[in-house]
Amino acid sequence: MTSWQDVERAVPEFAQRVRELFEAHRHKTIATLRADGSPRISGIETVFEDGQLVFGSMPGARKGADLRRDPRFALHSATVDPVDGKEGAWPGEAKIAGRVTAQQTENGDHFVADIAEVVHTHLDEKATVLVVEWWTPTQGLRKVERA
């Protein structure tokens, strides 16, 4: 299992940027898989706690049922538009994908992320190039720039 703490140890500066994007806003978006295999997008709140990325689901919620049946997920930070004239300062957006370990509680489901991929998409300082950086436990940190 790859915890958030593992990401922080492997690529601290990258992990800090991603975490700041996730913590900048309360609401995020999660993708799960329905029983028929089609995707479901839901709003969700997440927290970094004791070196783990964790989130929950209320009793009877479909996203919780999806994750208990198929633990794969993709999580997206909140997105804000770049400010006109200051596009180079745009913080970008972040994504985390993997699988969850589910625990039932009296308040619903509690999920701990086993992280397979972390992505930070942003612009370069001149706002002329889209920069996509991504980290996986097996390949480490990689980067591509698109003009």
Rank of each mutant, 00 (worst) to 15 (best):
M1I: 13
T2K: 13
T2R: 15
W4N: 03
E8Q: 15
R9A: 11
R9H: 10
A10C: 09
A10F: 08
V11K: 12
V11D: 02
F14I: 02
Q16S: 13
R19P: 01
L21H: 04
F22L: 08
F22C: 03
A24K: 15
H25C: 08
H25K: 15
R26S: 08
K28P: 01
T29K: 14
T29E: 06
I30K: 11
T32E: 01
T32C: 05
T32N: 04
L33V: 10
L33Q: 04
A35E: 11
A35P: 01
A35C: 07
D36T: 03
S38A: 08
S38W: 07
S42R: 07
S42N: 08
S42A: 10
G43I: 12
G43H: 13
E45G: 13
V47T: 11
V47H: 11
D50V: 09
G51T: 04
Q52L: 09
L53P: 01
F55T: 09
G56M: 12
S57K: 15
S57R: 14
S57F: 07
M58E: 06
P59S: 11
P59G: 14
G60V: 12
A61F: 05
R62F: 07
D66I: 08
D66L: 12
R68V: 09
R68Q: 13
R69C: 05
R72H: 02
F73V: 11
H76V: 14
A78F: 03
T79V: 15
T79L: 10
V80C: 06
D81A: 14
D81R: 15
P82A: 09
V83S: 01
V83N: 07
D84K: 15
D84S: 10
D84H: 08
G85C: 13
K86F: 08
E87F: 09
G88P: 05
W90M: 05
P91Q: 12
P91I: 15
G92F: 01
I96F: 02
G98A: 08
R99H: 11
T101P: 02
A102D: 00
A102Q: 07
Q103I: 13
Q104K: 14
Q104E: 10
Q104H: 10
Q104D: 07
T105P: 00
G108H: 05
V112E: 03
A113S: 06
A116I: 08
A116F: 04
E117H: 13
V118N: 02
V119P: 00
T121A: 07
H122P: 01
L123A: 03
L123P: 00
E125H: 02
K126R: 14
A127K: 07
A127F: 03
T128H: 05
V129S: 05
L130E: 03
V131D: 00
V131F: 04
E133W: 02
E133I: 05
W134H: 09
W134C: 04
T136H: 07
P137H: 08
G140F: 07
G140I: 11
L141E: 04
K143W: 01
K143L: 12
V144H: 08
A147Y: 04
A147T: 05
A147C: 08
